[in-house]
């Protein structure tokens, strides 16, 4: 026994079994084991357990991988461009219908506000299923995102923080709008549910409107005009829940 001060700990026994022992203690552990048969047997037993686990389950590694697993991205729209174009076409039709309904339902409401909701829902439908490129600039570069989009929209923008409702900023992107550039901010909650806030300049009309609501299929949208901007918050949420988020957005933009 070269090391008389060392006593084997339970953690060292486990680590020795798994080859994860700190090399500085290797000699001491081996010296201990040389004189303690019961511990040596435990190590052998546990190593046998590991070997049996491999014997039981390693054959799975050699099985052919089912198609449904090798191409999980098939489910995303990214790898099926034709699906994506089809979806855009569908949403153009839905968007058109939405616009038509809104036209009928809200006479006297300005055409500008209607196209606002229309474009926002369209942009929501196109970008929220996006798996790998949901945004152009991520939330980790929020300062850059805000500065960039403010510059492109020609007025200082604020990015609301919706953490209180469980939605965190994913990031944002620049989009073409009917009056020029528009911005889309995307949010996501812990379940992967996504909301988008669409912002575009309102061509200097400077009017304000109350919240208005429209819904098509699953997507609800609250939209309003406030100062130089038109805003539209879209998401697959129940109306009261979406309203709660919309109110938070409004409060954050008008502190």
């Amino acid at each position: 026994m070269s090391n008389t001060t060392y006593t084997l700990t339970e953690a060292d026994l486990q680590a020795y079994t798994d080859g994860q022992l700190d090399p500085l203690r290797l000699a001491a552990v081996e010296a201990w084991l040389a004189n303690h048969r019961d511990d040596t047997e435990r190590v052998a037993t546990y190593r046998q357990q590991n070997a049996t686990l491999h014997a039981l389950l390693d054959p799975v590694l050699n099985e052919a991988i089912p198609q449904r697993l090798t191409r999980p991205q098939r489910k995303t729209w990214n790898s099926f461009p034709q699906l994506r174009y089809a979806a855009v076409a569908v949403w153009l039709v839905i968007g058109g219908t939405l616009g038509w309904f809104m036209h009928g339902a809200q006479e006297g409401h300005s055409a500008a506000a209607m196209t606002l909701a229309h474009q926002a829902v369209l942009a929501h439908a196109i970008y929220t299923p996006e798996v790998r490129h949901p945004v152009e600039v991520g939330a980790d570069q929020e300062a850059h995102l805000t500065a960039w989009l403010s510059k492109r929209l020609g007025s200082p923008l604020k990015v609301p923080h919706l953490g209180a409702t469980g939605f965190e900023l994913v990031g944002g992107r620049l989009l073409p709008g009917s009056n020029g550039p528009a911005a889309q901010f995307m949010y996501q909650d812990a379940r992967g549910q996504r909301l988008t806030l669409y912002v575009r300049t309102d061509n200097g009309s400077n009017q304000e409107t109350a919240f208005r609501y429209a819904r098509e299929k699953n997507i609800g949208v609250f939209y309003w005009i406030d100062g130089p901007f038109g805003y539209a918050l879209s998401g697959d949420l129940e109306k009261p829940e979406l309203l709660r988020v919309a109110q938070l957005v409004y409060q954050q933009l008008n502190p």
Binding site: P72, K75, V131, P134
Partner: peptide
């Protein structure tokens, strides 16, 4: 078991960012 793998992969793709 493969359902579990599929659910895992789908969530991983969805949250890869």
């Amino acid at each position: 078991a493969d359902d579990l793998v599929q659910d895992t992969l789908e969530r991983a793709w969805g949250r890869f960012h």
